[in-house]
Design a binder for these strands. Structure first.
Lengths: 336, 336
DNA sequence: TTGTAAGCGTTATCAC
DNA sequence: GTGATAACGCTTACAA
């Protein structure tokens, strides 16, 4: 391993001069700097992050909290997409993206301890168990944190405009003549799911339509099977099938469509279905799915921008700042 | 920040003794150790990764190479799933998972330089541009590396048994009576795609069926649209439509089914379709998709195990070690 | 402009 | 069993 001392020796100067040259300081003559840079390159010098971090107390790294406890891992399209654009943005700025974990070697740590251990500059919470006892400690530590979607208390959050999206969906269905619009809500431990359910009720009420609890089902999860099961539940709750269904996710919607077909209903003729997310496949199912599209790229980059601003103290840490990202309503065959 | 010196002062011993206690060394009396541990806990001591790493030359961190240049980012189900299980496995062992990047602060680095900079214990190559000029340098550096799927030269690779999978698919189709089996190959820059194409030809030849180049199309990519386009291409190449199609991915297969329907073909009546991957949605399309299932969990954990073995020098770095992970053939409606 | 030296928080060697 | 102390590679006052 080549160190600045090796370079200093080779050049015939002090290590501090080498350091200055390497860091583009103005306290070195241009000539010296070029000389040092040339030698460094020739010798294959690579700086050492640990030594640098130890001396400067900066890590240039951002921790990502991506808990798998919730069964929403990296495979989840939305969160993977968000993380992807977040990663691209901060890496371009020179930050390293690393996953926050609870262990180092044989030792167990809390999230906060790990972040201190690694001295991360900031934390991006993608998915996390809101009941995790370690969470509170982290969110109150003063470390710059940004979150998405899960609506943690005390953490600035970037999230889709669930109210707007829901309203567009419901109003569209009503304009199409639907008057028994059911809602398959997402699991209510999810913040977005709660928002969408509230928005559903709110929109109906604003349109002077009475909310019928028998037309509301809570899915266990955001996935296909939950959508299928939700239809069974709906059939139990209500003798007469709804003429439209607004589902809290595309996966649920697609599962619901499959179940509806199995029960002999035609989509969209008997029942119109609207999803949420606009997953890539929603354009390819049969029928293709009308849905509320979430801009995962934008959510990821907005989260990144805000976190960087917090790190650079260009933004203040305000609790409960919620930034809404607009959604888009995409009409396809499932509501024709 | 609490350091071992603070603890030493509080306890009234030397910092080296504290270090020993903290590291569970046998060179401290049990009594002292307990005393130190108690004080450390009370003071909220958290070790410092940089200092430790600087002194020990170990980082307990693994770099993940996940290049987005190929348009296969984290959103790709297969790679996301593989990374997920890899991550879970190594984190449980106390390793940190961090993304390899090409920049640190304002400075640009090669992959290898970054790995040296961060002193990662090993590298997991998930996706990477095989033509990347930085790659060769990394794979020949002596750093423990494991790869999946993309069949890099000189790197131990964990990959699905593409030959077995292809054979099962083709033989099944032949048994069903198909005698004009087309193949929508994946992009031939992908190693797996090449393997599947070769296996397709090989299986036909072994069954004394002549390979018809007009029944082979190379998709631009692994995605839906490529599948749709491939059907157009197939129609151009061959006047008579195939009676079965073996596609290199589920996405391609689903795209192909959509295109086939648009052209008036019925699946599976006119054309049977088989995919590859077993993405979650393949069971929910209409018709649901017969496919070759890849075990992403197993691929991820096998990669993790091998990398850890390399790091611990329990395995030798052998070039071109390829470990095959078995696949499973799943029969659904698209071939009924 | 350049050099000296202290300090960052650990671990590890070697006396005692 | 315990304690000095050097070393890890770098940055940064401060001195020259």
């Amino acid at each position: 391993m080549v160190t600045i001392y090796d370079i200093a020796k080779a050049v015939g100067c002090a290590s501090s001069t080498v350091s200055k040259a390497l860091n583009n300081s103005k306290e070195v003559s241009e000539k010296r700097k070029q000389e040092i840079l040339a030698v460094a390159k020739k010798m294959g010098y690579v700086p050492n992050a640990s030594a640098r971090s130890l001396a400067t107390k900066n890590s240039w790294s951002i921790g990502v909290l991506f808990s798998e406890d919730l069964n929403i891992g990296l495979e989840h399209h939305l969160f993977a997409g968000i993380l992807q654009s977040f990663k691209a943005y901060v890496e371009d700025l020179g930050y390293e993206v690393t996953f926050v974990t609870k262990k180092v070697g044989v030792q167990s740590l809390t999230y906060l301890e790990w972040c201190k251990y690694k001295n991360v500059d900031g934390v991006f919470i993608v998915t996390v168990d809101r009941d995790d006892e370690n969470l509170n400690e982290l969110t109150h530590s003063g470390i710059p944190i940004v979150s998405v979607d899960n609506g943690l208390l005390n953490v600035p959050t970037i999230i889709s405009d669930n109210l707007q999206g829901t309203r567009m969906a419901i109003e569209y269905l009503m304009n199409k003549g639907a008057n028994r619009i059911a809602h398959i809500a997402g699991p209510q431990r999810s913040f977005a799911a709660v928002e969408r359910l509230d928005a559903y009720k709110d929109t109906l009420i604003k349109a002077s339509v009475q909310v019928d609890d028998n037309l509301i089902v809570e899915a266990d999860n955001y996935d296909f099977m939950s959508g299928k099961r939700a239809i069974d539940q709906l059939l139990k709750q209500s003798e007469k099938m709804a003429d439209a269904i607004y589902a809290a996710s595309d996966d649920i919607a697609i599962g619901a469509i499959v179940a509806l077909k199995e029960h002999g209903y035609k989509v969209p003729e008997d029942v119109a279905v609207v999803g949420f997310d606009n997953i890539e496949l929603s354009g390819y199912t049969s029928p293709s799915l009308t849905t509320v599209s979430q801009q995962k790229d934008l959510i990821g980059t907005e989260a990144a921008k805000h976190l960087i601003a917090l790190i650079n103290k260009e933004a203040q840490i305000e609790r409960d700042v919620i930034k809404r990202v607009p959604v888009e309503f995409i009409i396809r065959e499932s509501t024709k």
